[in-house]
């Protein structure tokens, strides 16, 4: 029993950066833009968040810095695809190239310019991302570990998922946003400011993805910079959007399942080579892609305007 709880606990920790990335991408796709730059924005968030945490010694600034960096990536993407109508696929890939390079360069720069070529955020910042410890509750048998011993970012991710669900499903602005993603021309005709919605959603979505990067550099690596630390998480997040059927609530489940796959080898010992274990999350993503496309549910769920730039004068 304890083993199962440990496994779920580890799965949630490993799945949280995926959840941030997935949520950011869901918001972006809901407004009709397929941003393949999640990996890049996560790298930007990871490096800038780390830089803020290291130089300002403030956990809050690390989180805000990571968010801002991701949002900046989103802004570049939004400017190119919404205003300049560039191809969304190529722009997203470029954002990934840029973001991965930028993140590694900045992280590397900090490492090279710190004593002993090793930079760690202070104990104070690290403590802010340590696991929760509420006296009485966190020590409860089973439930304590299962629900009340995560770091603050885990709860933040869940909160964002719930808020996004409420926003998209229950508010007028959320309805407008979805309308822009489904049919921008119709939304435009009833004077929904299409461009403003797109910019805002893409930037906020990028910021949320950036938080996933902060999670990586602050908790996964333990508050230091590891070269190539994001390593494909952003790409899995893009695929998870399909798995989650563009729903923030389902994204929580999907992310934790994939987090579980990536830590499986520490908990389930089978006679399988390490490389095959490492392959699992990616192979599982492929299976998800296949199943959803064979069932053809993708057609119904993906926002209709996704991937196509809206040009007001070309109706």
């Amino acid at each position: 029993m304890q083993q199962v709880i440990n496994f779920i606990y580890a799965a949630v920790l490993a799945g949280t950066p995926l959840l941030f990335g997935t949520l950011g991408e869901i918001l972006t796709e809901k407004v009709g833009n397929l941003n393949l730059g999640v990996e890049g924005m996560m790298f930007m968030g990871a490096a800038v968040g780390f830089a803020c945490g290291y130089y300002t010694d403030s956990a809050l600034l690390a989180v805000l810095g990571g968010f801002a960096a991701g949002a900046l990536g989103g802004l570049i993407y939004a400017f190119l695809t919404v205003t300049l109508k560039a191809n969304q696929n190529v722009t997203g890939l470029t954002l990934t190239i840029f973001g991965v390079g930028f993140g590694n360069m900045l992280g590397d720069y900090i490492m090279r310019h710190s004593p002993g070529n090793a930079a760690f955020v202070s104990e104070k910042v690290k403590a802010a991302f340590a696991k929760l410890n509420v006296p009485g509750i966190s020590d409860l048998p089973f439930a304590g570990k299962l629900f009340f011993q995560y770091n603050v970012l885990v709860y933040l991710a869940i909160a964002i998922a719930i808020l996004m669900y409420i926003f998209l499903q229950k508010t007028q602005a959320g309805l407008n946003l979805r309308a822009v993603g489904e049919n921008p021309a119709a939304a435009d005709a009833v004077s929904v400011p299409v461009t403003r919605y797109k910019y805002l959603a893409i930037c906020v979505g990028g910021g949320i993805s950036g938080l996933g990067g902060v999670y990586v550099s602050m908790t996964t690596t333990g508050g230091t910079w590891v070269y190539n630390c994001v390593n494909g998480l952003g790409w899995i997040a893009v695929a998870l959007v399909i798995f989650a059927a563009w729903s923030p609530a389902k994204a929580i489940v999907g992310s934790y399942v994939f987090g579980g796959l990536s830590v499986l080898r520490h908990y389930v010992v089978l006679e399988i080579p390490v490389a095959i274990y490492a392959m699992l999350p990616f192979a599982a993503t492929i299976v998800v892609l296949l199943v959803t496309s064979v069932r053809q549910s993708r057609e119904k769920l993906q926002p209709k305007g996704c991937g196509i730039n809206y040009d007001r004068e070309e109706r």
Binding site: I97, G101, F102, G103, M105, D108, Y109
Partner: peptide, 15 residues
């Protein structure tokens, strides 16, 4: 300078 600078420059040129 980190050789990731090449990616950054590539990205900027492409943008």
């Amino acid at each position: 300078i980190s050789n990731a600078a090449a990616d950054v420059l590539t990205g900027i040129i492409l943008f």
